[in-house]
Simulated scan of single mutants.
Amino acid sequence: MNKNYETVSIDLARIEKLTEQVDSICSLDIPADIPNGDMPGDKIEIGESHIEKARTIFPELVKEIQKAASANPYHRATVCVCGGSGVGKSEIASILSYMLTKAGVKSYTMSGDNYPHRIPMYNDAERLHTFREGGMRALADAGICDAKVFETISKLQKDEDDANAAHVNEYDWFEHYLNGGKTALTNYLGTNSEIDFGEVDTILDAFLNGADKLWLKRMGRDEATLWYDEVDMSETSVLILEWTHGNSDNLNNVNIPVLLNSTPAETLEHRRSRNRDGKLDAPFTMMVLEIEQNKLKEQAHKAKIIITKAGELIDFDTFKQLMD
């Protein structure tokens, strides 16, 4: 799909001059209506904390972009801004892109959420089915799946409470179900079964190989809102991938992973603060977040830049201490 393109080489001098502009760019006022990623219907709300984090990241990002672009024959670089739920990936990626463009280095923000195999509604259903099938299979393997157990599980599923670890204390068989389901879900989330990493990596590869245009996917909430746009990349120096899974081992063409870190306690507090009806998140949702966070932790050693939720740049050793 992305092979029918001409190649262009970006002027490296513009990137080299970034160093001289860091202070002035970091002091820019950031408008609320800056361009954001290419996910249909995605709305960002830029707050002062997002701006401050972007200002902290920017000087380090400039150094990494200069190194990557100097080593690239077309003087281009790819960046991913990754992290868990509520860390501000969309907002911070958009601000960094705006800052680069204002400095004369044009960038484009691409949303990885356009690239699952299934539209959101079906993917959510597939996640839940994967968990439940894994749980039931684990019960069967343990020889526990009798009529009474099935009746109890069926009720818990209808109540959307079958991922609740508290039931381990109620039923001596429940741990088999919970662990089997969680293992199956772990083997699905953020893998090639869920996401078309191949397409994303092909796009990144084409960009790094000088593509003057790219066909980029757009995925809405239903089957009737899925299409591709041809995007002009002829003057673009930096492609920013905004995505939870941007630092995945399934991607080979990300030059600069930027991890927006959040501890499990911070993630939970954020979700509670956004819960307008006062209800806690469903146990299954919390399990998904836990699995995603574990995968982010496993991949963090590759990050070139790590910033905490409090806005502090840290190294990998400090990250490990925080997460432990």
Rank of each mutant, 00 (worst) to 15 (best):
N114R: 03
G41P: 10
A32S: 14
L96G: 07
Y122T: 08
E64F: 04
I119H: 12
N72C: 14
E126C: 10
M99S: 05
E52R: 13
S70C: 03
Q66P: 01
D42E: 13
D42H: 15
P59C: 14
V87D: 02
G86P: 10
P31L: 07
G41E: 02
S70T: 11
Q66K: 15
S49K: 13
K63H: 09
V79R: 04
E91Q: 15
D124A: 14
L28E: 13
I57Y: 05
L96K: 02
K89L: 12
D33L: 05
P59G: 12
I44R: 08
D124C: 06
N72S: 10
D113M: 09
G41K: 02
I95N: 09
K102H: 07
H117R: 11
R55K: 15
I95D: 07
Y98F: 14
S107W: 00
N123C: 07
H117F: 12
A32P: 00
I92T: 13
F58G: 08
K43M: 13
A125Q: 11
I30T: 08
K106P: 00
M110F: 08
S49D: 15
H50V: 10
A69T: 03
G41N: 06
Y108C: 00
N123T: 01
K43I: 12
N114A: 01
C82H: 06
D124G: 03
G37W: 03
H129P: 00
A54G: 12
A32C: 02
C82G: 13
E64N: 11
I65P: 12
V105S: 04
A68S: 15
T56K: 14
V87E: 03
F58H: 10
L28W: 06
Y115T: 06
G84C: 01
G88H: 04
G112I: 01
M110Q: 09
H50M: 10
S49V: 10
H75K: 08
I34Y: 05
V62M: 09
G88R: 04
E126M: 14
P31D: 06
S90D: 11
A69R: 06
I92M: 09
S90M: 07
L96R: 02
